[in-house]
């Protein structure tokens, strides 16, 4: 066999070995085994407490984690439950009364895994308790998004409005008999 053939074979075997090693460590999982976190409650500014809710095959799932900011809290939540929780499909972000809106929005926006299309809501009480206590928060908020009394801006729209206009109107949620309701609209002004 010529030297070139040996080299080709070596490269081929190396790539196969890389594939095998990667496959062993990649940890793929079925989509049905993953809990897609759809609604995320954010309380506090430092530390931040995140409350994630989503639907798993076995039923609703609710997890809580703390960190010095959103990014660290997300990491803590994923590390605590690395095989099941998927935080890249958040559709709704609910901010508690103690949460600095503009700072939180920018933290979420700058985190590439968050996405820009999550709708932003405020909560009258602690966001974690609101999200955890609500019945099917994702579906309820989706209904409010589609036919509610006010329109919830997306993460990008809210951040843009704060940066350009210095203010943004956000719907305020409260829990009434276990069901989320829009009870007010708050105007948040940028720093």
């Amino acid at each position: 066999m010529k030297a070139g053939r040996w080299l080709d074979a070596l490269i081929f075997i190396s790539l196969l070995a890389a594939l095998w090693v990667l496959g062993r460590n990649a940890g793929g999982r079925e989509l049905t085994d993953v809990t897609l976190v759809q609604t995320l409650g954010v309380d506090g500014s430092g530390p931040v407490t995140l409350t994630a809710t989503g639907e798993a095959e076995a039923g609703p799932v609710c997890r809580t984690a703390r960190g010095q900011d959103i990014v660290h809290a997300r990491s803590a939540m994923t590390l605590a439950d690395p095989t099941r929780l998927e935080l890249t499909h958040i559709a709704q972000l609910v901010l508690g009364p103690e949460t600095p809106v503009e700072e939180t929005l920018w933290q979420a926006l700058l985190n590439r895994k968050s996405g820009c299309n999550a709708t932003i809501w405020l909560s009258r009480g602690p966001a974690g308790a609101l999200v955890a206590g609500a019945e099917q928060p994702f579906r309820r908020l989706r209904t409010l998004e589609e036919s509610g009394p006010v329109t919830a801006p997306t993460l990008l729209e809210a951040a843009w409005a704060l940066a350009e206009e210095g203010r943004v109107d956000l719907p305020v949620l409260a829990l009434e008999d276990g069901v989320l309701q829009v009870v007010d609209v708050a105007t948040v002004e940028g720093g």
């Binding site: 079925e30 989509l31 049905t32 559709a91």
Partner: peptide, 28 residues
Amino acid sequence: AVLFHPEMIPLALAESIITAKEDVPFGA
């Protein structure tokens, strides 16, 4: 995408795939 990169799949599509796959006994 389904096994390793669910973040690539838009939420609506991911939900649709999950719903369709709920009672299927085999892996993707």
